[in-house]
């Protein structure tokens, strides 16, 4: 019976790189889509707002696991056979994080005092100028801590990409387990690697929070 060796550990570390890669894809993709949705959510047109709200409700109201399955099988239906699993996983995670980031950022934008909008209007800035020159720079300072906090969620949730067969850290753990069957040891190591990835982000988020003193604004 083979046991857990350095080679298995190396394999897990290599897979952890894919976890990081997938997280980066989800964060960048989700950030771009989410930013658009956040702006739509505070749009001055009513139906755009309703649409954005519906999008957020749907994304936040369905489990990520189901989203991943939908994209995994949906891509095949649209006509792309043989797409690599990273495509479905990346797309699912992008949509998932966009729904949450949009809501986080909307909150940050709306927490900028209304007087700032009014003052900018008095300076006869256009709506777009008001947003980009006055509101967003202030909202960004408030947004950094929760965004870094959400990054931890993204890293953790990439573990679900294993269900569509993408070999990231969790899937690698399952694969190693299939060959040596020491589930407890293996998943403890997997959890430890996740912890090493996430803990610095959590700490960073907390220190940002303290520095900006968001709670006592």
């Amino acid at each position: 019976m083979p046991t857990f060796t350095l080679i298995h550990f190396q394999f897990l570390c290599w897979a952890a790189l894919w976890t990081v890669g997938l997280s980066a894809i989800a964060f960048v993709g989700g950030g771009l889509v989410g930013f658009g949705v956040a702006l739509a959510r505070i749009s001055s047109t009513r139906w755009v707002r309703i649409l954005a709200t519906a999008y957020i409700q749907v994304v936040q109201g369905t489990p990520l696991l189901i989203l991943l399955f939908l994209f995994y099988f949906g891509i095949a239906i649209v006509g792309f056979k043989e797409v690599p699993a990273i495509f479905a996983a990346g797309l699912g995670l992008t949509i998932y994080s966009s729904g949450f980031l949009a809501e986080i950022w909307r909150g940050c934008i709306e927490s900028v005092p209304k007087t700032q909008w009014e003052a900018a209007e008095c300076l006869s800035l256009s709506r777009w100028q008001r947003l980009t020159r006055v509101i967003l720079p202030q909202a960004m300072r408030i947004a950094t801590a929760p965004t870094v906090g959400f990054l931890v969620q993204i890293v953790k949730n990439t573990s679900l990409a294993s269900v569509v067969g993408f070999v990231e850290l969790s899937q690698a753990g399952k694969l190693v387990n299939n060959s040596i069957f020491e589930p407890f040891t293996i998943f403890m190591v997997v959890a430890a690697i996740y912890f090493v990835l996430c803990y610095p982000l959590s700490t960073w988020s907390r220190s940002l929070e303290r520095k900006l003193n968001v709670g006592r604004r």
């Binding site: 753990g173 589930p183 959890a191 959590s202």
Partner: peptide, 22 residues
């Protein structure tokens, strides 16, 4: 709190499920 919040639920489920079996 720190350990649970910084590891994925999927891995926690595996550890508990297989841990009990072990």
């Amino acid at each position: 709190v720190e350990v649970i919040r910084n590891t994925p639920l999927l891995v926690q489920i595996f550890i508990i499920y297989f841990g009990i079996a072990t």
